[in-house]
């Protein structure tokens, strides 16, 4: 599904990722944990194709395609989805119109007919129920005036609608209280499937109490320094990142 080898990336000529290796198989949920500044968000952004990051080495293959050679919209159409840490507000762009444009862009890319208004609304209703999302959010401009929890739920709703093969959740827990976190996590869990892989990027272990990963990786100073099962997350919660970073440096 996803294979990252020796990935190096710079921001403003400062190297952030320093040779990162990671392989994610179909249906697997991987958590990327690490202290602030370790390169977690950079990894998420480089994978999604955001401007401002220079890849200086390594390769990323996604479903046997050279991911880094593709435009962001092509990556999305091929099944990559980034749930933003800070979802962007789009004044004047109606949420329903936005969702329909996104879904139809993907369908068009795969040579399928665009969904008509009725089928689209039916699909939305169905997905809304799964996420317990208030449909009033759909009538408003994208993310404008949404609370932190609403923004994150809107991200997960987009994910539900676009049905990606690989979802990257970038600090999805940041800024959420425990109730909102539970709702978002339940939404994510509802979308787990043998065909869908997930990369859960987080600083804290608490999200992983709700979204249980198959694998946990510790990212520090631009490299994965430790990989393990979900018990690794627990250990990090108890002992912090210090010991493991020191150990890796030794």
């Amino acid at each position: 599904m996803l294979s990252i080898q020796g990935l190096k990336a710079e921001v403003d000529e400062k190297e952030i990722l320093k040779g990162l290796d990671l392989t994610v198989g179909a249906g697997e949920v991987h958590a990327i944990m690490g202290p602030n500044g370790s390169g977690k968000s950079t990894l998420a952004h480089v994978l999604s194709g955001r401007e401002g990051y220079a890849v200086t080495g390594g390769s990323v293959t996604f479903d046997d395609r050279d991911l880094l050679a593709l435009e962001p919209e092509e990556r999305a159409c091929l099944g990559l989805f980034l749930a933003f840490q800070y979802p962007v507000e789009l004044p004047g762009v109606n949420n329903t119109y936005f969702l329909k444009a996104a879904l139809n862009a993907k369908r068009k890319y795969h040579g399928e007919d665009e969904l008509d208004a009725v089928s689209f609304l039916r699909l939305m209703k169905e997905k809304l129920k799964v996420l317990h999302l208030d449909d009033s959010l759909l009538k408003r401009p994208v993310n404008v005036g949404f609370s932190g929890g609403e923004k994150k739920r809107n991200e997960i709703f987009q994910m539900a609608l676009l049905e990606p093969k690989l979802a990257i959740l970038d600090e999805t827990d940041s800024g959420l209280d425990i109730d909102a976190l539970r709702v978002v996590a339940n939404g994510v869990n509802a979308l787990r499937s043998p065909e869908r892989s997930m990369l859960v990027v987080t600083h804290y272990q608490r999200l992983l109490d709700y979204i249980e990963p198959d694998y946990v990786h510790v990212l520090a100073k631009g490299r994965i320094i430790r990989s393990g099962g979900k018990e690794l997350a627990r250990e990090l919660e108890d002992k912090g990142y210090g010991w493991i970073v020191d150990e890796a440096a030794a």
Partner: peptide, 29 residues
């Protein structure tokens, strides 16, 4: 705004359509 444009593109929307959507959004008020 590049941020807005990237958000739309990250959802699979081609660049030209994304720019048009943002313009119409701007005019929408």
């Amino acid at each position: 705004e590049p941020e807005m444009l990237f958000y739309l593109r990250s959802r699979g929307i081609p660049q030209a359509l994304a720019r048009r959507m943002l313009c119409i959004g701007f005019a929408g008020e």
